[in-house]
Structures are given as C-alpha cells and as structure tokens.
Nucleic acid binder design. Structure first.
Length: 597
RNA sequence: UGCUCGAUGGUGUAAUGGUAGCACAAGCGACUCUGACUCGCUUUGUCUAGGUUCGAGUCCUAGUCGGGCAGCCA
C-alpha cells in the first residue's frame, strides 16, 4: 500500500445529513445508547472491496466519526465454502487505506484473541470488545467466527424456549414446504418435536454425527407469514468444511440472518446499516434478538440504496468472473472498480471519500453518472499533483537556430495552484519531441497548435515557428524544422508575446523513456449489469500501453507522489510493476478536454 | 399478481406545511505560458388525479411507474 499523498490536506466540509444520520441524531438527543454510537462494516471475505463498499464504509465510519463513536471492522465469515484468507487481508488493507487520515481513530478493533464468553449470560454481562489506541499493538478486526461458541449457546436457548427446532427435511423438501410469494407454506412435520429431542439432535449435529444437509436448525415463526423470511427460516446448516479462522472446530455453521443480528448485539453495535435488499430481513433480525430476551439495548437495522455507477460493475461475483476469465490482470488491475484497483490507478482515498459522501444516502435506487466520480478525482488531484512535461506520442522537432550542443535552461512551475509555486529546471535542446496531436499539416478550424507557417509556444521555453515539414520517401513524417525565437525566452523582452497555442515538449537528448498505461472505461454500455452477458460489452480498448518520453526529473518519480503530465492528465507510478530503471506509469485520469468536443 | 420499499431538472440530491436550492453534466462568455484550473451568465424539475389547508414537493386517499424478496449465499 502506498502512503496517502494528501491525508492532511482534507478540505473542511460541512457534516453530511441524511435520513440515517437524522435517526442517529435523534437517538443521541434522547440518550438512547449510553455507551455511545457504534456502527460496523461487515464484509464477507469472499472477494475484494469495490467502490460500492466505499459508500458503505464512508457512511458507517462517517457516522462513528461525527458522533465520537466507533465503527467495527467485522468479517461476516459464516460460510467457509466461499471465503478465503487472501480476502481477509485485502479487505483489512483496503479499509485502512480508505479511512487513513480521516476516521482511523474510529476504527473499532479488538485485542488479539479476544472472544465473548461462551455462555450467553456471561456474554450479556459485559461487552468483550475493547478500543485500543490507534496503531496500538495486538489489535485485530472482529470476526463473526469468533462468536460461534456464543451463537451456539444462544441457539440452545432458543430451542429450550420452544422457538427453534431441528428439522430433518431435505433441501428440496424445505423448498417445497416454503410455499410461494402469494401462497402460504406448510409446516414441517418436525416442527413440534419436543425441545429435548431437538436439543439432543442439535448437539449431535455439532458432534458430526450427520452428513451435510441431513438436518438444519430452524426458527419456529410462521409458515403462513406473507414475508417469506419469517417462514421458519434456517439458522444452522451442517457443513463438514474447514474454516479459515476456526479451522476444524465446527461442522455446523450459522446462517447470515442468525449470525448477523447477534454479532451486532455482542459487539454493542447500535446502528446496523445495510443495503436495501435486506429490508425484508429486518423483521427476522428483530425477531431473533427479541426471542432471546436480551438485557442490553438492541441494535436496529437501517437500509440504504447501494451505489450504482455508470459503465461499472459493482458485484463481487461478476468482478471475480473478470479476474477468473483474465479479462483483467487481477483484482487490483487499475481498470477494476475495486479499492485495490482504484488505489493502484493513483486515485487518492480523499477523492473517493468526497465522491461517495457527495452522493448522499437515500432509499432510491439510482444510477450515478461517471462524470461525478471523474470530477472528484480531478478535483483532488489538481491541488496535489506536481506538473511535469511528458510526450506520449512523439514527433521530432528540430530547432534549426540552436547549436547541436546548446542547452537552454528553462524554469518550469511545479504546481500553479500553490501560493508560492516551486520551480524546477528543464533543458531545451536543438532536438525536442512534441505531441503528435499538437501538429496538423491540414489544421481544422480554430486549431491553436502547430501548423505550417504557424507559431506556438513551447511551455516555459519560448515561441517557435514551423518552417518545414520533412517526410520520407513513403510520405511518413520524419521531423518538423522550426526556428526558436530567443527573444521570447523567460526574462527576455518578448517573453509575454501572445500566441494562441502553448504546447508541452521534452528534450530528445535529455528525456527518459517510460511505459505508460492509458485506461478507458472497462465497459461500452452504461449499465453492463443489465446486459444478458456483461462479458460481451467489455471495452476491447480499455488498456493501451505505450512508450512515452518524460522530462528527465521523472526518473526519480516515487509511487507516493501524484503527477500531472501537462495538458495530458494525472499519472501515478504503478506501485506493482514499476522499478528503478524501468518506469511504469498509470494514467489515473485525463484532463478535461473541451476542445475535443 | 402476496409482502415490502421508493418516485424532485439530463444525473445525484436538499427543502422536516411557508421564496423549489446545491453539485455534476450541458450551453454561452471572460481569463489563461495547461483548449486544464478559476470566474460570470444561461437552459432544464416536484409521477398522475382528487382531497385537507390561508398555503402542499412535504399531510390524506386512489392510481401509475420502478426496485427488492421464495439459497442449507451474504
């Protein structure tokens, strides 16, 4: 992970307001949660975090931050079949990156190895979590798997209270009994078996006596409920599978609805914020907590609409497909909307934060234009990026009135946005490269750049005039022969002489080569997820790799810095592939180009 | 056609019964040693129909349109 280039430079923004924050504020006002406000970010470690998660992270950490509370990072790891340690590590790193310099003091962690007591009553007695000092030793994220023992004890209690039972129906039979959206379900024949029998069976499930799928633990609610999630939902299933955290300790694993609400409760979470698709699960979330008659204030669930971004896929499943089918080079490919990809591409975390925060939080299923994201990225980078000269597609220019060995030193401004901008030297020599786009033999109307007989300013150097176009026998352009007006150099009397165009350039003899990766959107349509096959709308030109010529100072470029190649865009070192002597730059984003329209 | 949630310019949102505002986008102009940035101006909106009220985007009723829900996924 690269250091955050602008962690300290966050502009003060008014605290956001939305319907969830309004609710939190009213709870604070009525002192509903004396222990303070606790939220949580609960990813399942089955893929990399993406830009949609950034919205959730900023919401949950933002609320914690605004209320001097805490946001627990908790892995919702109840399904060992789909999860992997690689994802645990990437997610932890991505969260820390996004939150660094902003809400890291609100990141809820626990002392290494801390677990709630194994019995529900003891777990009720006190919160087991702690809040170590930032960066303190021995702090680690929470895991739902830490609660397997406590969750199991809670389940025993439900069985004893007649609120849960072991069901011997097969998966197909359970489905058949469930009914349909407009037809009530039928009760399981095992629904009313004695609690003692269910408890014995539940113990034997844990002991490994039954194969996968043979039995389940179900809540006893209402098979005729109009809400399907209340039709005796499954709480536990048998899975003879090793878990990335708990190893071989368990062969029964709790399901989401059961594990999530209780994990929230155990951690002292007050506001459990999730996306809209869990709206219909909320009655179940509440049913489980209330069925256990727990002593502390219960967490409540609130739902908001997830982020949808135009030309982007925000689905771990589909992102995994892109990786597996080698459409991209990995989860951290700079074209990916993953936090890892976005970071590698050079986007500052602060840009991502302003973007998602500016979106607001509602229950309306929206599609955000990509321009909003791009604006946030450019805006963050504009104040941050050191200006440099670089030529992507070189055309040779010979300044015929400069001697072969002549070197004219020019002062270039590092960032005109700074109050007292620093400068650096760049060398002008007889042979330079300019951008091929900046020359037109047959110029279109209102073309400000170099054209036959025309003048243009080489930025920081002075004005040149095109005298002659040299081509080879095949008619291909060889070089442009120009004269350099020495009286327009910095400090010379005509330095302020106006010409319409100013272009970038590099000295042909004093430049460095670098691999530059230019990115375009990964999909050709605004809503790739709505396509029957989203792989068919992958943009075949999403990556273009070229060899560019950079001003010599860029040989010392660092991965922590951000650069603007003047008139071209914002670029960053590719932290993974770049090495001393073999520079690799990613174009984070181009500059706005109103001329191209 | 069961339950549930939603609907404000092109897009995303604000207005908590009292002047429909902001951002992005778009258009025009100014500035410019980045056709960037910045600045100025402009276009465009309360799903429909009733009702309550001095006054409705907001409250009520009915409708229309859209999202979500029937994994031993989360």
């Amino acid at each position: 992970m690269t250091a955050e280039p602008n962690a300290a430079a966050e502009a003060p923004v008014p605290a956001p307001a939305d319907f969830i924050r309004d609710i939190v504020a009213s709870h604070v006002a009525e002192q509903r949660y004396p222990g303070g406000i606790v939220t949580r970010f609960p990813p399942e470690p089955n893929g990399y975090l993406h830009i949609g998660h950034a919205k959730s992270i900023c919401l949950n950490f933002g609320i914690a931050r605004e209320n001097q509370g805490r946001c627990n990072l908790r892995f919702d790891d109840t399904n060992p079949a789909k999860e992997d340690l690689e994802y645990v590590h990437s997610i932890a790193a991505d969260v820390r990156w996004l939150v660094a310099g902003w809400a890291e003091q609100n990141l809820g962690l626990k002392p290494s190895g801390a677990r709630p007591a194994a019995t529900p009553d003891a777990a009720d007695a006190a919160d087991f979590y702690a809040r170590p000092a930032p960066g303190g030793a021995a702090a680690e994220p929470f895991f739902a798997s830490d609660y397997f023992e406590a969750l199991y004890a809670f389940a025993e209690r439900l069985i004893l209270a007649g609120k849960a039972y072991v069901c011997d129906l097969s998966a197909a039979e359970i489905e058949a009994h469930r009914g349909t959206l407009d037809q009530p379900g039928r009760e399981s024949p095992f629904r009313n078996r004695p609690a003692a029998e269910s408890l014995d069976l539940f113990h034997r499930m844990r002991a490994g006596e039954f194969p996968d799928g043979a039995r389940t633990l179900r809540a006893k609610i209402d098979m005729a409920a109009p809400n399907i999630w209340l039709r005796d939902p499954l709480l536990y299933r048998i899975r003879h599978l090793a878990h990335h955290q708990s190893g071989d300790a368990w062969c029964v694993y709790p399901l989401y609805d059961y594990a999530h609400c209780l994990s929230d409760y155990l951690e002292g979470v007050t506001h459990s914020i999730c996306t809209l698709e869990f709206e219909v699960h909320r009655p179940l979330y509440e049913w489980i907590l209330e069925a256990l008659a727990l002593p502390r204030a219960l967490p409540r669930q609130y739902e908001f609409a997830k982020l949808n971004l135009a030309y982007t896929i925000v689905s771990k499943r589909r992102l995994l497909q892109l990786v597996q089918e080698n459409v991209v080079t990995g989860w951290d490919d700079p074209r990916m909307p993953t936090l890892a990809g976005i970071r590698r591409r050079g986007v500052p975390a602060a840009a991502l934060r302003t973007f998602v925060t500016g979106l607001g939080v509602t229950k309306f299923d929206s599609l955000t234009e990509i321009a909003v994201y791009e604006n946030a990225v450019r805006d963050a980078l504009n104040g941050l990026a050191a200006r440099r000269l670089a030529v992507l597609r070189p055309v040779k220019v010979v300044l015929t009135n400069l001697a072969e060995d002549e070197v004219l030193e020019c002062r270039a401004t590092n960032n005109p946005q700074d109050e007292n901008p620093a400068t650096r030297p760049v060398a002008l020599t007889r042979e330079v490269f300019i951008e091929s786009d900046d020359f037109a033999e047959v110029p279109p109307p209102k073309y400000f750049r170099l054209k036959p007989g025309g003048e243009v300013r080489l930025k920081y150097a002075g004005i040149i005039k095109l005298d002659e176009i040299v081509k080879d026998a095949a008619g291909a352009l060889v070089e442009l022969r120009c004269t350099f007006d020495r009286t327009t150099r910095q400090g010379e009397p005509n330095s302020d002489r106006k010409v319409k165009g100013t272009i970038h350039w590099v000295s042909a003899s004093r430049c460095v080569e670098a691999e530059v990766r230019l990115y375009d959107r990964l999909f050709t349509v605004a809503e790739p997820a709505a396509e029957p096959d989203f792989l068919k709308v992958v943009n075949p030109r999403s990556l273009e790799t070229i060899t560019a010529r950079l001003e010599a100072s860029l040989a010392d470029a660092t991965a922590d810095d951000r650069y603007q190649f003047e008139r071209l865009g914002y670029f960053a070192i590719d932290a993974k592939d770049s090495a001393p002597g073999r520079l690799v730059f990613n174009r984070t984003i181009s500059l706005k180009d109103t001329w191209a329209k």
